[in-house]
Simulated assay, not measured.
Amino acid sequence: MLYLTECPRDAMQGWPTFIPTTDKIDYLNALLKVGFSTLDFGSFVSPKAIPQLADTAEVLEGLDLSQSGTMLLAIVANLRGAETAASHPQIRYIGFPLSVSETFQQRNTNKSIVQALDDVARMQDICARTGQQQVVYLSMGFGNPYGDAWSPAVLGEFTQKLDGLGVSIVALSDTIGASTPATIGPAFRELTAAYPNIRFGAHLHTTPDTWHEKVAAAYEAGCRHFDGALGGYGGCPMAADELTGNMPTERLLEFSTQVGLEPGVNLEALGEAVRLNQRIFAGH
Rank of each mutant, 00 (worst) to 15 (best):
L79M: 03
A74N: 06
L73G: 00
H88N: 11
V100T: 14
I113H: 12
V100D: 06
R92Y: 06
G69N: 01
S87C: 07
S87H: 08
T109M: 05
R80Q: 10
S99Q: 02
I94W: 08
T109F: 04
Y93T: 02
P97D: 06
R107Q: 04
A86H: 11
Q90E: 08
S99E: 03
T70V: 12
T84I: 00
S101I: 12
N110E: 15
N108Q: 14
E83W: 04
M71C: 07
I113P: 12
S87F: 03
T103H: 04
S112H: 13
I94G: 05
L79R: 00
N108M: 14
L73M: 01
G95N: 15
I113A: 14
E83S: 05
P97N: 09
G69W: 07
M71L: 14
R107F: 03
G62A: 00
T109S: 12
V100S: 12
H88C: 03
G62Y: 00
G69E: 01
D64Q: 03
R80I: 01
V114D: 14
R80K: 14
L72R: 09
Q105P: 04
F96Y: 15
A85D: 03
F104N: 10
S101Q: 12
L72G: 07
A74E: 01
A82L: 00
P97H: 12
L73H: 06
P89Y: 10
V76M: 06
L98T: 07
F96R: 08
V100A: 12
L79K: 01
L98M: 08
Y93E: 08
T109C: 11
T70S: 09
L98N: 02
Y93W: 01
K111D: 13
T103L: 01
L72Q: 04
E102R: 14
I75Q: 15
Q90N: 09
T70D: 05
Q106P: 06
F104W: 14
G69T: 04
N110A: 13
N110P: 07
K111L: 15
A74C: 04
L79N: 04
D64G: 10
S87W: 10
N78S: 14
N108T: 15
S99Y: 04
M71F: 12
A77F: 14
R107C: 03
S99L: 09
L65C: 00
N78T: 15
R92L: 02
N78L: 15
G69K: 02
L65H: 05
M71A: 09
R107N: 03
V100C: 09
T109P: 05
S66T: 11
Q90P: 07
N108L: 12
T84C: 06
G69S: 02
A74W: 00
L79Y: 10
S112N: 12
R92S: 00
E102L: 07
Q67W: 02
R107Y: 04
V114M: 10
L79S: 06
Q105K: 01
P97G: 11
S112G: 14
H88R: 09
Q105E: 11
S68W: 11
V76P: 07
N78C: 15
K111M: 15
R80N: 09
S101H: 12
T70C: 10
N108W: 13
R80T: 10
V114W: 08
M71V: 05
T103I: 05
S112D: 14
Y93G: 04
Y93L: 00
A85H: 05
E83G: 07
N78K: 14
Q67S: 06
T70P: 08
H88E: 00
A85V: 01
Y93Q: 00
A77V: 13
G69D: 06
